[in-house]
Every structure is written in C-alpha cells, then in structure tokens.
Amino acid sequence: MKVARFLAERPLALTLVVFGLFAAFAGARYDGILSWRVLANLIEDDAELGLAALGATFVLIGGGLDLSIGAVCACSGVLVATLVTGHGVEPALAFGCVTAVGAAFGAFQGWVIERAALPPFLVTLAGLFLARSAALALAPESIAVDHPTLAALGDARLELGDFSFGVLGGAWLLATLGGAWLLALSRFGRAVRAVGGNPRAAANFGLRPARVRIALYALSAGCAALAGAAHVVYGGSASAIAANGMELDAIAAAVIGGTALSGGVGSAFGTALGVLLFGFIQTVILFEGTLGAGWTRIAVGALFLGFVAARRLIERWARAT
C-alpha cells in the first residue's frame, strides 16, 4: 500500500521506470543506441514536438484541452516562411510576430470556450479548421526558406565532447526550464494548478478561473506557434499540411510524462521526458529498420492508454488501502 501511495503521489515515477526499462532493453539489443550522439539528435529532432507539448501540458493541467496545436504550428510555420521570404522580414522579428499572433488566436479560442460555455474540444476543433485553412490560404504549396540567419541558426552547434547542442535543442531546454519555473514558483503556475485541481476552491480564494483558462489557451497556442518557427529552422521549409495530428502526439507525450487529463497535475520536466520517450521509441523503431510507421503509433497510443489506465487503477488502489 506504500507503493500505491508513492505512485499515486508521484506520477513521474512511473514514467522514469518505463523509460529505464525501455532504455535497458534498447541498450541490450542495439549497439550504440545509448550514446551521447543519439541523445543529442533526439533532443534536436524532438524540439518542435517538445515546445508544442509544453503548451499542451499547461492547458491540460488547467483542466482544458487544445486540439488546434498542430494546425496552429503549421500556420505559424507558413507565416514565418512568408514573412521571411516574401517580405524580407528579419527572422527574429518574424518569430516574435507569429508567437504573438498565435497567442492572440489561442486567447480567442479560450474566450469563446469560457463565454459560450462550450466544450473545449469542440471549440479547439473549430480552431483547428480555421488555422489549417488560414495556412492553406497563405501557402497552398510548400515554401522553401532560404535566409542566411536561418541557415546559420540551423547549423549552429555547441560542441561538448561527443554531445553537440543545437539552437532548437537549446530553445526547447530554455522553454522547459521557463515552464518549470512558471508552474512551480510563479503565482500564475499556482493559479493554473489550483484551477485545474479544484476550481471551486480556487474561486473561493480569489482566483478567477475563466481568466486563468483563457491565458492558458493563449500560452498553448503561443507554444504551438514557436514550434512552427522551430519547424522552419529545423527543416528549412514550411508547409500548410505539416504537423498533422501533432496535437495528439503532444497530449500523449504530456500524459506519458505524468500530466493528468483530469487537471491539476503535471510538470514541464515530465512532459520533456515524455517527449524524449516518444522520440526514443521512434529511434528504436528506426534502428529495428523493418518496422513500419504503424508501430510508433501503437507504441505511443498503448503507452498513453497504459498511463491513463494505470493512474486510474493506482488511485483506486491507493484509496482502497
């Protein structure tokens, strides 16, 4: 029963155990998979998803759901590409622009959810349609982005022995640190967790749940927009149909990282771990060579379902003892 309580109070423990087992299995099976180089690549490759998942984590902790993440990500990628190639805007300025636009779009979604008292999944579904169509309207075809600053950003590396660190990985790391600080130490983070954990108590103690949630949707869409910018830096191009279904991967990563879909629980580091586990599974499947894309989905979906179900069972167990 001590185990049950321990697991119920520390959702991340389960993630770590699964990660450890998985790494041990992979290490025994494939040579060289447990190397700094693989880890560095993992971080660099998953930065885009990591940024999006960070935003999704905040929304989930606040008791909401955002299905527009992938579409917002694609839209902002296209917007960056258009601004930089079409209008000669400096990349840094373009990044700032799309993040602001994304946040405004998210705030709008949040406002509709709170104002019309509609289910979040429905409103963000509509948001998905709107953002996706805006992206297609901006750029029906894929846009190649060729800009010296972007190229330099994409190539910049910080070598630490075997471990090399790119700009994207750095941005993700910084965002995760910032998210962790926001959640653990800021008043906003405390409000988010209180609103997700017990909205009635939060309201009784002077917090304004509606405002907090609107801010969360803005934050989530802002993170998704940043992920879109990261996509451009990473791939050197932008497409309106990119990041299809990314919202699911982001939510799955957050849940695997210990975020509760019922709200109130979650952490930025946990989500980063979830994203890494997600990427690690893809790497393993790549190493295996013969396995198709289906396995990634099955593994991620099964992990997602397994974590949700395990949490439910652990909670029942902890309550029973």
């Binding site: 699911l248 799955a252 396995w295 099955i298 593994a299 979906g301 099964a302 997602f304 379902l305």
Partner: peptide, 8 residues
C-alpha cells in the same frame, strides 16, 4: 487513445 492505437 484508441484513435492513436487503432490507426497504428
């Protein structure tokens, strides 16, 4: 969750 798994 089943949406993700079933497509896989």
């Amino acid at each position: 969750a089943t949406m993700i798994v079933v497509r896989g």
